[in-house]
């Protein structure tokens, strides 16, 4: 690994290869939004508390404000722009699982991973996962209903 403070790194974002010049001090969230124009990941607290910036890194939910971009080199990064017509997205629409919408992309990424990784998730497991995201409009009930509607179904295992 180079010790040059400016690095040119190859990222795999939404299944596309992207070469980006980064400072080691840049967060993944900053690179996604500012360098790659993927503004679906939202800056909220920038402190790992709110979950609005959640993306998937090799399928695992990560808060992109808590991750240096250099740590994402060579990993498969999925942002909300990489989710298309997934069951959880349809469920959010059907259950009206959003109000202002600011937290929605983060919730969707986390819920998508939950459905894939824990297709038979218990209520306790759902709560444990979804505590990572904050909805200031407090639309939690509808979000929970949306998740439950796609759990343990063939469609849920996207």
């Amino acid at each position: 690994m180079s010790s040059d403070p400016i690095l040119s790194l190859l990222f795999l974002v939404n299944s596309e290869e992207k070469t980006v010049t980064v400072r080691p001090a840049d967060t993944l969230l900053y690179i996604l939004r500012v360098r790659l124009g993927l503004t679906g990941s939202k800056p909220g607290c920038l402190n790992g508390d709110c979950g609005a910036c959640t993306v998937l890194v090799d399928g695992t939910p990560m808060k992109s404000c808590l991750m240096l971009a250099v740590e994402g080199e060579g990993k498969q990064i999925t942002t909300i722009e990489g989710l298309v017509n997934t069951p959880i997205q349809k469920a959010f629409i059907e259950k009206f699982a959003f109000q202002c919408g600011y937290c929605t992309s983060g919730f969707l990424m986390n819920c998508h991973a939950l459905v894939n990784i824990e297709p038979n998730a218990s209520d306790e497991k759902i709560k444990d996962w979804l505590e990572s995201n904050i909805c200031r409009c407090t639309g939690y009930k509808e979000i929970e209903e949306a998740v439950k509607s796609v759990l343990n179904t063939a469609e849920g295992k996207h």
């Binding site: 010790s3 403070p5 240096l68």
Partner: peptide, 11 residues
């Protein structure tokens, strides 16, 4: 984004 630069090494 952090307000200072640093070198980064992955051994």
């Amino acid at each position: 984004m952090l307000p200072f630069n640093f070198e980064y090494y992955k051994p």
